[in-house]
Amino acid sequence: MYIDRRCVYYRKPLLESGTLGTKGNVQVVIPFLTESYSSSQDPPEKSIPICTLKNFPNAIEHTLQWARDEFEGLFKQPAENVNQYIQDSKFMERTLKLPGAQPLEVLEAAFKSLVTERSKSWEDCVTWARNHWQIQYNNNIRQLLHNFPPDQVTTSGTPFWSGPKRCPHPLEFDTMNTLHMDYIVAAANLFAQTYGIKGSRDRAHVVDILKGVKVPTFTPKSGVKIHVSDQDLQNSNASLDDSRLEELKTTLPSLEALSTFRMYPIEFEKDDDTNFHMDFIVAASNLRAENYDIPPADRHKSKLIAGKIIPAIATATAAVVGLVCLELYKVAFGHTKLDSFKNGFMNLALPFFGFSEPIAAPKHT
């Protein structure tokens, strides 16, 4: 869009082309003659309903998107918010103006990062990863089944867990399970990076640390609201807990106490196999897929889906290159010269296709 603005400003033609799998496009922008590149926009991508992601996944694409959201919500957004809290004097004022329950969510995440989940050692990071595993793959699933038991029926008498809704089951952590340990090692290392703590790939050492982790006992609670659809979510006016908000404002560490502290947000990078990013995505997604009896995806397929990669097709690329080159000839030679060029070429080529009559030169107005 920047190049488009510059081309229009300097009255230079712009040739834009691209492919998307078997699809392709070519657009010619002639300033003050055609529309510019920025005049139109691609339609928005279809998004997965929030409630499907949070509670009712039925395809590996859902669990991978959930894992990507987990990555952002654990290793990027909280660290960014903490740094803004420390460095930006208007952070609190701006946060409190956010709509709905967002102010509470942002401050809760900052409070966790600075107080309840603040890590100071590698052992703390492993402990955090083990407790988070328990929350996501056991506790939350048990709470969901408490709200909607496997035998629950709807008001119309049909089973609640039917159609696209898969009835989940909780997982039990096992250090002998490779997938479980993949998650712990990746999550602990990423969490350590956000605090500037040196991580480790030594699984035997991680297992030793896990032996000393005491996981809190969880009991499903009555009265916990779980939204069944996005419409239900929108209709429920999430009220802001003002008392909790005030409590967070007063209990967050003072800026003086954090004068030398900072966190390190992590930007997702799928193509570095040593940074634990795809290790976390694959493990987090496949564990959730196991919760819901969804067939898992290997690393390659997970990378394609999570990275939104659509493989290029050589023939489609070649066709689009040919088409955009024809447009380049038009721009470079002008329409009249191009038509003469095309007709001369076609008169030479047509006999090969069984045609004997030459093409008449077009009449230009």
Rank of each mutant, 00 (worst) to 15 (best):
C7S: 10
Y9V: 06
R11I: 10
R11L: 10
R11E: 15
E16V: 15
E16C: 05
G18T: 04
T19Q: 09
T19I: 14
T22M: 10
K23M: 13
G24S: 11
V29Q: 02
I30K: 00
P31N: 12
D42V: 04
P44S: 15
I48A: 01
I50A: 06
K54I: 12
N58S: 15
A59L: 02
H62C: 03
L64D: 00
L64N: 03
L64W: 04
L64C: 01
W66F: 08
A67D: 00
F71I: 03
G73R: 09
K76S: 14
K76Y: 11
P78G: 05
E80A: 05
E80Y: 01
N81Q: 03
N83M: 08
Y85M: 01
I86G: 01
D88H: 07
S89K: 11
K90V: 10
L96R: 04
K97I: 02
P99G: 13
S113Y: 04
V115H: 02
V115Q: 05
V115G: 02
W128S: 00
Y137D: 08
I141C: 02
L145W: 12
L145Y: 12
P149L: 03
P150F: 00
Q152I: 13
V153L: 11
V153D: 12
S156F: 09
P159A: 15
F160M: 05
F160Q: 04
W161R: 02
P164V: 01
P168G: 03
H169Y: 11
L171W: 11
E172M: 03
F173Q: 05
H180T: 06
D182R: 06
V185K: 02
A188L: 04
N189E: 10
L190V: 11
Q193S: 13
G196A: 07
K198P: 02
G199R: 03
D202Q: 08
R203C: 07
R203V: 09
H205T: 11
V206D: 01
V206E: 02
V207I: 15
D208I: 08
D208W: 02
K211H: 14
V213W: 04
V215H: 04
P216W: 14
F218G: 05
T219C: 08
K221N: 09
S229F: 00
N237G: 09
A238W: 02
L240R: 05
D241C: 06
D242R: 03
S243W: 01
E246W: 00
T251L: 13
T251G: 03
L252W: 01
E256G: 01
T260F: 07
T260G: 03
R262F: 07
Y264V: 12
Y264E: 09
E267P: 00
E269I: 08
E269D: 13
T274F: 00
N291H: 08
Y292T: 03
D293T: 05
A297H: 02
D298Y: 06
K301D: 04
I309W: 07
I309P: 00
I309D: 06
P311C: 10
A316D: 15
T317R: 06
A318P: 00
A319Y: 01
V320L: 04
G322L: 12
L323D: 14
E327A: 13
K330R: 14
T336A: 07
D339G: 04
K342L: 14
N343H: 05
G344E: 15
N347G: 04
N347I: 14
A349M: 09
P351D: 14
F352T: 12
S356I: 13
P358V: 08
P358G: 03
P362E: 10
T365H: 08
